[in-house]
């Protein structure tokens, strides 16, 4: 299965990746090879196999849940300094118009 340049551009835009024309070219080739491989995999009969969505086991699933108990959050200064711009209480981003 091949992938065309338009699809690569579309996916790149959804992922907010700015690809140069050379990178687009390269991605078409590389993603094409990945998809070819997947194509081969899809030829295998897996009708008797449960779909795997998580690489752990059921026991782990049980353990991973937490009780509904609040715990302390981060100090606000620490939360805010993760971003380029803030006003001391909220993050500042370019105006979103909708």
């Amino acid at each position: 299965m091949s992938i065309d340049r338009g699809t690569v551009r579309h996916v790149a835009r959804l992922a907010r990746l700015a690809l140069s024309p050379e990178e687009e070219e390269k991605t078409v080739r590389e993603l094409g090879r990945v998809l070819d491989y997947i194509e081969r995999l899809s030829g295998v009969d897996v009708s008797a196999v449960e779909p795997l969505t998580f690489a752990g086991d059921a026991a782990e699933a049980k353990e991973s849940m937490r009780p509904d108990e609040p715990r302390p959050s981060l100090p606000r200064e620490e939360v805010l300094e993760q971003a380029p711009e803030h006003d001391g209480s909220t993050y500042l981003v370019p105006r979103i118009i909708e």
Partner: peptide, 21 residues
């Protein structure tokens, strides 16, 4: 009382960004 994937409080009306981890 707490969020769905972490222990931050869900109380309404807290000062902005004080229930974040």
């Amino acid at each position: 009382r707490s969020k769905i994937f972490c222990g931050c409080s869900t109380a309404f009306g807290a000062p902005a960004n004080t229930q974040v981890c």
